[in-house]
Simulated scan of single mutants.
Amino acid sequence: MEKINTQKWDNLVKAQKSQSKIDNEIKTPEQIHSYFFIFDCYNNTILFTNSSFETVTGYEPNELSLDLLLKIIHPDDLKYFFECEESFLEFTNKLSFNEHFKYTHSYSYRIKTKNESYIRIFQECQALEVNESGHLTKTLVNHKKTEYSEKPDTRDFKIYDKSQNSYIDAENRYNLTKRELEILNYIKNGLNSQQISETLNLSKNTILTHRKNILNKSNSSSFIELIKKLSYVH
């Protein structure tokens, strides 16, 4: 049985296009717009960079280090880069073991390619490994080349909650109370005032008052407008 299973697996491997000489003769570098690398947060090193890095930036994969990345970031974007990383670090330091895998964070900035031209990349980062103490140790970082612009229209730093399928306001910039944040989360999940009232064991009038206060604090005319605002975390 073991031999049969091994043969089946070998057949699957050989069926991959990556194993085909004909398919590997087809080169389409113009269609490659992204690459990824693995970052060791504990040792502050880049462990692996995939080959697409060279196609997008001109640098060889083994050249990518933290020093090179900081060197090629546009000088005008460095402050924003550190602000975003600091914001996410503050957020992740409060997470428990399994919570790390619920979130991704993303933003964009400009980097200089080996031919001295600038491109804008969209960076998305997610947890890859957490140690036994529940602290983030390795992350998977994806860079995707996007349409170039001198500066983004808005600060585009976002934290995405994969379990809720929505972005979060990590810094609570509208100064909502703990109860208001709880009610807002129920609204984002599609519950109406009566359902929230029953879930929290509060009167419907109390829920309606909280809803009104949330809109007033956020200067929003509706919760649709507020949720759109919360797609961007500043």
Rank of each mutant, 00 (worst) to 15 (best):
E25A: 13
T199Q: 11
K79C: 00
I119S: 05
K17S: 15
N50F: 10
S203D: 13
Q194G: 06
S108G: 07
N219A: 10
L184H: 03
F122Q: 12
S65C: 12
S197A: 15
L136A: 07
L176P: 01
F36Q: 06
E150P: 00
T206N: 13
S197D: 06
D76F: 06
I4G: 00
H143R: 04
Q194N: 13
K8F: 11
F48R: 11
R110F: 10
L89M: 10
M1V: 07
L70M: 14
R173L: 02
E60M: 09
Q7I: 13
V130P: 03
F37K: 06
S65K: 13
I46L: 00
L230R: 05
H100N: 14
F91G: 05
Q194M: 12
D40E: 08
Y232T: 12
H210W: 02
I38W: 02
N43Q: 14
G190N: 07
C41W: 04
N172K: 01
L226F: 07
D156K: 05
N185M: 01
S149N: 08
Q164F: 13
S52W: 02
E150G: 04
A170K: 02
D161T: 10
L64K: 04
Q126S: 15
T209C: 00
Y109L: 05
D156F: 10
P29N: 08
K71R: 14
Q16S: 14
E99R: 06
I187L: 15
N205D: 11
I224Y: 05
E171Y: 08
K8M: 09
N115Q: 12
I111H: 01
D77R: 03
N43L: 13
S20A: 06
K27G: 00
L136Q: 06
I111E: 00
D76Y: 05
E132V: 13
K71C: 08
E25P: 00
T49L: 07
E225N: 02
I111G: 01
Y59W: 10
L176T: 04
T55G: 02
Y35W: 15
N189E: 10
K102D: 11
T113E: 03
S133V: 12
H105P: 01
K8E: 07
I46G: 00
Y107E: 01
H135M: 11
K71H: 15
L70E: 11
E85S: 09
L128H: 08
S51T: 15
L230P: 07
A170Q: 04
D153T: 13
L47T: 12
I183P: 02
P61F: 12
K229F: 05
I187R: 11
F53M: 09
S203K: 05
P29Y: 12
F91W: 07
E60S: 12
E83N: 10
D77V: 04
T49H: 06
H210G: 00
F37H: 15
K158F: 00
E150V: 14
D40F: 10
F36G: 03
N43R: 14
R110S: 15
N43D: 12
Y42S: 10
K144I: 11
T45S: 14
L191C: 07
F223Q: 08
S18E: 14
L181F: 02
